[in-house]
Computed example of a mutant assay.
Amino acid sequence: MPYGYPGFPGGHQGAGAPGSQGYPGYPGYPGYQGQGPPGYGWAAMPMTPANGMGVTSLVLGIVAAAGFCLWPLAIVLGILAIIFGGIGRGRAKRGEATNPGQALAGIICGIAGIVLGVALMVVLVVMPDDAFEEDGASNDDSYSTTLVVDF
C-alpha cells in the first residue's frame, strides 16, 4: 500500500492525463461539471452564533448590580443591560445565537441594578437630612457658654 494522500477519482494518472476524466471539482480540468465535491465549500459551513449581545448584557447587568453605590452609573448600565438582553433573546429565538440564558440573566441583573440604584438615590437624595438623626435633636449645641453665678 503506497503512502501519502489518495489519488484523484479518475485514478493515479493525474488530472488531464491521457485516459483520465479529470477532477470534477476544479475548473480547467476535463470533465469539470461546475460544482465542487459534495460536503465541501462555504455553503455547507454553519454560521457561528452571534452571542455578543447576551454576553454584553450579562456583563453590564453584573456591573450595574454590583456597583449600585455609583447609582447614576448603575441605572444607565442597568438600562443598557436590559436593551442588550432583549436583543440577545431575540437573536436566540431566531436561531442566530445560542445563549438565551445569558441574555435573560443580564436582563435580571440589569433590573436588580436599576432597583438598587434607584433605592440608593432615594436614600441619599430624596430623604431629608433629619431622618438620619437619632433623637430628633439638631446638630447645634444647646449648652450655654455664659457663666451664671447664683448668690
Rank of each mutant, 00 (worst) to 15 (best):
G39Y: 13
A44P: 01
P27W: 00
E133R: 15
F151G: 08
I111G: 08
G106M: 12
I108Q: 01
G86W: 13
G16D: 05
N51H: 09
V122A: 08
S57G: 15
I83P: 10
G90D: 11
G78P: 03
I62K: 08
G36Q: 08
L60D: 09
G41D: 07
N99T: 13
M121G: 14
G61D: 03
A97P: 07
I79T: 09
G25Y: 03
R89I: 14
L124M: 06
V123W: 11
A74Q: 06
S144A: 08
P27K: 00
F84P: 05
F132Q: 02
G19H: 03
G54A: 09
Y3F: 07
Y29V: 01
G110R: 02
G22W: 03
G110Y: 00
L116P: 02
D141K: 10
E133P: 01
A43L: 11
G34Q: 00
M53G: 05
R89C: 12
P30L: 05
C109L: 12
M53R: 12
E133H: 11
V59L: 15
F8V: 03
N139Y: 13
V55S: 11
G136W: 09
M45Q: 12
D130S: 15
A105D: 04
N139E: 07
V123I: 12
V118R: 03
I87S: 08
G54T: 08
P2M: 02
P6A: 06
V59K: 10
A64D: 06
S144K: 06
G4F: 04
G28F: 00
G67K: 10
L70N: 15
P6Q: 03
A131F: 13
W71T: 11
I87Q: 13
M1C: 03
G106T: 04
V115Q: 01
S57F: 08
P18T: 02
S142R: 14
S142A: 14
G16K: 01
P128M: 04
Q33L: 07
R94Y: 06
L120N: 15
A17N: 04
G10Y: 02
Q102T: 05
V126D: 05
G34A: 00
T48M: 11
G10W: 03
Q33A: 05
V118W: 04
I108F: 04
A112D: 01
L73Q: 12
Y3P: 04
Y3G: 10
R91N: 12
T146D: 13
G101D: 08
G78M: 02
A81E: 11
G52I: 02
V76T: 15
L73H: 14
G78Y: 00
R94L: 10
S20I: 01
A66D: 08
M47F: 10
G36W: 07
P38W: 05
L124C: 02
G113N: 08
G7I: 01
V148R: 12
P27R: 00
A137C: 10
Q33F: 00
G85F: 07
F84Q: 11
V118T: 07
Y5A: 09
P2S: 04
S57K: 07
L116S: 09
A64Y: 04
